[in-house]
Amino acid sequence: ASSTNAIAREAGVSPGTLYQFFPNKEAIAIELGDRLMHEMRDMYGEALAPLDPSTPLEEAVGGVVDRFTAFNCRHPVFFALMHGPDIPGRLAEEHDALHANLLAGIEAVIAAFLPDAPAADVTRTARMCLGLYKAGLELVLSHEGAEREAYVRELKNVLIRYLAPMVAEARSAA
């Protein structure tokens, strides 16, 4: 919803300078989105690295939520770009690919905790976790300071309480 003049002012350049590099706001959004998606890919490669199955669930969930939340708090425009109504077509396609890779990473983490679960159950659980995270992230991003920290704790609690019974059942069956 920002104007190119406002973008130029925020960037500390003249509108003319901005137009030398970007013909319109969509081009700016695409470039910014590309850069942030690349950074997000690097970050989630670390956040969703293979886990030792003996890792406590709270530690695994906390580590993933902390990394993803920190990224989104550093780059709140990422959430707006990726979930806004005017996402440019090319960016939407790249976001869909990023989302599919992210979901596969979450599935791998969940599969480490639920090694005997059918693939369809792991996929459903991963989708549910991602949906819960995205809903909670919107609340996290709309607050600051201690209130933001409280929402992050609540988000972790929701995910842990959702996953804990499944993990406990899998571990007792093993």
Rank of each mutant, 00 (worst) to 15 (best):
E144L: 02
L130F: 02
A92Y: 07
R74D: 03
L32G: 05
H99N: 09
I106F: 12
A112H: 10
L81W: 03
R161Q: 07
L139Q: 14
E46K: 10
K134A: 09
E107K: 13
L114A: 06
R90D: 03
N72C: 15
R148C: 12
M40F: 12
A1V: 06
R171S: 14
A146P: 07
G89E: 12
V77A: 14
G45D: 02
G89I: 06
R171A: 12
P118D: 10
Q20E: 02
A97I: 08
T125Y: 06
F79L: 02
L81D: 04
E94Y: 07
S142V: 02
A174L: 11
A27P: 06
P88Q: 09
G131P: 10
L130A: 05
E46F: 09
E93Y: 04
V65R: 10
A104R: 04
S2W: 12
M166Q: 15
I87N: 14
P165S: 09
V167L: 15
T4D: 08
V64W: 04
R171M: 09
R148E: 05
A60N: 08
K134R: 06
A8P: 09
P118L: 07
G62K: 00
C73E: 00
V109S: 14
G16Q: 01
P53S: 06
R74Q: 02
A146L: 12
L98E: 06
A104P: 00
T69N: 05
A170M: 01
S172I: 10
D116L: 13
L103K: 14
R171F: 09
P23E: 10
E58V: 07
A146K: 11
L98Q: 07
P56K: 06
I106D: 01
